[in-house]
Amino acid sequence: MATIHFTKGQGTGNDFVLYSDPDGRRPLTPSQIAEICDRHFGVGADGVIRAVRSSHLPEGAEALAEDETAEWFMDYANADGSPAEMCGNGIRVFVRYLLETGLAELADGETLAIGTRAGVRDVQRNLTGFQVDLGRWDLAGGEPLVRARELPVARPGLGIDMGNPHVVVAVADDDELDAADLSYIPHIEPAPEHGANVEFVVPHEPLVKDGIGRIRMRVHERGSGETLSCGTGAAAAALAVRYWAGSAAPDQWRVDVPGGTVGVRMFPTEDGEHVALSGPAELVYTGTLELA
């Protein structure tokens, strides 16, 4: 039996089991991760995050080559045990975990570089909790048709790459958004090679208030099912609505998800436009697990 000491954390209801493995000696198998994430027989979570020093992982070596200060790597797996490139809510919770367990320090105004499979991401404290620079984004994946259970017709989505793949779909109103049954995997045609997170979004009325765009979103996450929030998905949804709204649309957005509210901000950099995500990150409890 293997024993791990874990912490349960959440960011706007997107929840994770985190554990420390600085030297990279205790990776979990996909079946162990799925067992932990099972909401009936396990701890219950949308994914598992392992804290590993970047120097002890091949992907971490790539992160260190990008930024030598990226000491820690967020080794993230979905609830089904499949590895994921990035998680916008997860990285905020991960930084909270590093700070609370004494594995890292982050003074006000400073930035902590974190290695991920999508590259290095910089995290800062802010008034809502933490803000992460999600890096450059790209229109990718075209405009596939998306079908979801209890939505009457297929509709076009917009493919957006946030370091992980997304397809954003506009729905008519709140009633249609609420009716979608996201316990079933939405059907994307043509199907992305590696799957995608699918966001269903509706604008508030008015769309823009006090210079801030406002939308409401639900999401089906690849490998996890419907979750109460998705950080990169919120960013993708805001980017899609801004794209559809045209050049007069704002660069700051409030995205309401079932688990709360996150902020999204687009800003220019030397290597292109970046997207920042801000929101809360909380640690809920700690425990010990015995795994076969």
Rank of each mutant, 00 (worst) to 15 (best):
H56M: 05
H204I: 01
D251A: 12
G233Q: 08
E226S: 04
R50S: 01
V171D: 04
A196K: 02
A45T: 10
P190G: 12
M86D: 00
I91M: 03
L18T: 05
V219P: 08
Q32P: 06
R216Q: 14
W253G: 06
E143W: 00
G287R: 09
S55P: 07
A113L: 04
T69N: 11
S20L: 10
R222D: 15
E100S: 09
L98G: 09
F73L: 09
R26A: 11
A276Y: 00
T3S: 08
F6H: 00
T116H: 15
M217Q: 14
R50K: 07
V146I: 10
G13K: 04
D108P: 15
V132N: 08
A34E: 09
P190E: 14
N89Q: 02
E273D: 11
I33V: 15
L139E: 14
V169F: 11
Y76G: 00
T12I: 06
V123K: 14
P190D: 07
A234G: 09
A191Q: 02
A45Y: 05
R125A: 13
S229E: 04
E35A: 14
V241T: 08
T261P: 05
G90R: 05
L239D: 02
A118Y: 02
V123I: 14
V201Y: 13
D67S: 09
G263I: 07
M86V: 02
P58L: 15
A113W: 11
G13N: 02
E68S: 13
V257M: 03
G81R: 01
A240F: 07
G231V: 05
G81M: 04
R39F: 01
V262L: 14
L182S: 03
L64C: 04
W137M: 05
A77Y: 12
A245S: 11
A51Y: 10
V95K: 05
G263T: 01
G279K: 00
R121H: 14
F16N: 01
A154D: 03
W72T: 13
T7W: 13
L158V: 07
A154F: 04
Q131V: 15
F73R: 00
N197I: 11
I49M: 15
